[in-house]
């Protein structure tokens, strides 16, 4: 096929994709933006046209009434801590298994593998959270979200670390490099792609959890975005202009962050999924 012909085919394909994707994936967000800039009276009579006049006041009101900053901050804290801790823990579990440094390593590996096939255990976790004093605390909430990163991390890292030459450990040992130092200074920098993949899965699971905050948290000041925004939605369900502004305030940093890191995200997420 000639290059020109192929370019033309590509253009057709892209046009077709755009016709499907833009209305489904971009227009809803643009409509949200549109509504957030309308006055309440325009929304009641004529929601679909462009804002006339443009009302910016929905944004400060939503911010003031929704406690959105707090929810956003909580979500970031939970996601970053749970991801960081679970990946770190998983690295330290996986490496000795990969190197056979630990006796019973394959048993431990099998235990983690079983974790993939276990039932949803929100009820025992709820009871456990109360008994261990983790219920309705921020630290508890983080610990209750180590599951995804830890299980996936161990399985994924064992395979990954086995491909890192063993000579590396031995040379480091000969040079008197301590274990912790070795893992942090040598092993982790070599494991970038694996760390990214597992972190993405853990972060998405924690960030998106809605039932967790309903079951494990009782105080509004600890709510992450998922539950906080849902409460906000319930309170202002009839005031769509305010609600749309609130949702957009939260969505915008996500869209921007996502735009910046999506290349890595996409690569990491798919690399992991295909290898599993």
């Amino acid at each position: 096929m000639s290059r020109r012909l192929r370019a033309r085919e590509q253009a057709w394909k892209l046009a077709l994709a755009a016709v499907i994707i833009v209305p489904l994936f971009a227009v809803p967000l643009l409509y949200l933006l549109d509504v957030s800039l309308e006055s309440a009276s325009q929304f009641l009579t004529d929601p679909l046209s462009f804002p006339h006049p443009v009302v910016l006041g929905n944004y400060p009101s939503a911010w003031a009434q929704g406690n959105l900053g707090q929810y956003f901050l909580n979500s970031v804290i939970y996601t970053v801590s749970a991801t960081f801790l679970s990946v770190l823990f998983a690295v330290f579990v996986a490496f000795p298994i990969a190197r056979r440094y630990a006796r019973g390593g394959s048993l431990i590996y099998a235990l983690f593998l079983a974790g993939f096939f276990l039932p949803v255990s929100i009820i025992p976790l709820f009871i456990e959270a109360q008994k261990l004093g983790l219920y309705n605390t921020q630290w508890g909430y983080v610990l209750l979200h180590l599951q995804t990163g830890l299980t996936l991390g161990v399985l994924f890292f064992v395979g990954y670390f086995s491909n890192i030459p063993r000579d590396l450990d031995e040379s480091a040992q000969l040079d008197g490099c301590g274990y912790l130092q070795y893992v942090i200074r040598i092993l982790l920098p070599l494991s970038g792609p694996a760390l990214v993949t597992v972190s993405i899965y853990s972060a998405v699971a924690t960030w998106n959890d809605l039932i967790g905050p309903i079951v494990f948290l009782a105080s509004e000041k600890y709510f992450p975005l998922t539950r906080g925004l849902f409460t906000f939605y319930g309170q202002y369900e009839s005031e769509w202009t305010l609600l749309a502004a609130g949702v957009f305030i939260v969505a915008l940093p996500l869209v921007l962050t996502f735009g910046v890191i999506q290349r890595y995200l996409v690569r990491g997420a798919t690399a992991g999924a295909v290898k599993l």
Binding site: V215, A218, E220, T231, G234, E237
Partner: peptide
């Protein structure tokens, strides 16, 4: 702390609160 919908979301908040002891 509030929840919207007495027979639904609020019922879940009650349930966890009665047991949670907070």
């Amino acid at each position: 702390t509030t929840a919207v919908g007495r027979p639904t979301n609020y019922a879940a908040l009650e349930k966890t609160s009665v047991e949670g002891g907070t």
